[in-house]
Amino acid sequence: MGNSALKSHLETSQKTGVFQLTGKGLQEFPEELQRLTSNLRTVDLSGNKIEVLPPSIGNFLQMKSLTLNANRLTSVPPELGKLKKLETLSLNQNQLQTVPPALCQLKALRTLCLSGNLLTELPPGLGALRHLDLLDLSHNKIHHVPPEVQELQAIELNLNQNQISSVSSSISLCPRLKVLRLEENCLELSAVPLSVLDQSQISLLSLEGNLFEVKKLRDLEGYDKYMERFTATKKKFT
């Protein structure tokens, strides 16, 4: 991409606080953006070939939304944790095997999307994100949901299309969890914690495409309680 085109984008971003440059084959995070650290609020660099996010990403203290979907990132720097105003972080379709603990410092974060990576476990410490509405970990290689999940503050947790064969009953203790998606995993009916049905806040439980017929859920103790929550939520939106 020519310098003049980039210059034109930078000039626009100076006025709008938004920098969007998708599908242009960029191989690195544009260094020129450093000129805009004081006013850049939204950056979308999806569909490029970026392999490394530089530590200087920590300089964008006004940033509220960072989207780097469909790049080639294998890691993200701990400096990302400095973005105290960040509300949306989307890193779908990269090659991340882990995420740094510094992510837990993003106290304003509402949406964290890590779909289509190489994660094998739930990133630890995400319970520190008190305002998290959505955590998307679909299309990864996660095998189980550990007891620490109870610390999670998310309203929706998407774990579709992983390799999950066990779910800790602690998930029923998540204080804000309303939507739990576990489609296309490796769950037996016996691996579904009964506490999710009769003791949780969950009003939408998605389990299609596992190792049992979904209609067999009806035979489980607590299913009626779950259906009461499901129906009550449905009425709200009709």
Rank of each mutant, 00 (worst) to 15 (best):
N92A: 15
N92I: 01
N92L: 04
N92E: 14
Q93P: 00
Q93K: 14
N94A: 03
N94V: 01
N94K: 05
Q95C: 10
L96D: 09
Q97G: 13
T98M: 04
P100S: 07
P100K: 08
P100T: 11
P100N: 09
P101I: 01
P101M: 08
A102M: 01
L103C: 12
L103G: 07
L103A: 06
L103H: 07
C104L: 00
L106M: 06
K107Q: 12
L109S: 06
R110Q: 14
R110G: 13
T111I: 14
T111L: 11
T111A: 08
L112A: 02
L112P: 04
C113A: 13
C113K: 13
C113H: 13
S115N: 14
S115T: 14
S115L: 00
G116N: 09
N117W: 10
N117L: 02
L118E: 13
L118M: 12
L119G: 10
T120E: 14
T120D: 10
T120F: 01
E121Q: 15
E121F: 13
L122S: 08
P123W: 10
P124V: 03
P124C: 09
P124T: 10
G125K: 11
G125H: 13
G125E: 08
L126T: 01
A128K: 14
L129F: 06
R130I: 00
R130P: 00
H131P: 00
D133A: 10
L134V: 12
L134C: 02
L135C: 02
S138D: 11
S138A: 15
H139M: 03
H139C: 10
K141A: 13
K141C: 09
I142F: 07
I142W: 01
H144C: 07
V145R: 06
V145Q: 11
V145D: 07
P146E: 05
P147S: 05
E148H: 03
E148V: 04
E148K: 11
E148F: 00
Q150N: 03
E151Y: 11
L152C: 10
L152D: 05
L152E: 11
L152K: 11
Q153L: 00
Q153D: 08
Q153N: 02
I155C: 05
E156H: 07
E156W: 08
L157S: 05
N158D: 15
N158V: 12
L159C: 09
L159T: 12
L159N: 11
N160V: 01
N160R: 11
N162V: 06
N162Y: 03
N162E: 07
Q163H: 14
Q163C: 12
Q163V: 03
I164K: 06
I164T: 09
I164A: 02
S165T: 11
S165K: 09
V167Q: 06
S168H: 04
S168E: 02
S169Y: 01
S170H: 15
S170A: 13
I171G: 03
S172C: 12
S172Q: 10
S172I: 00
S172M: 00
L173P: 00
L173H: 09
L173R: 14
L173W: 05
C174E: 03
P175R: 10
P175Y: 03
P175V: 09
P175H: 07
R176M: 09
L177V: 08
L177S: 08
K178H: 07
K178Q: 15
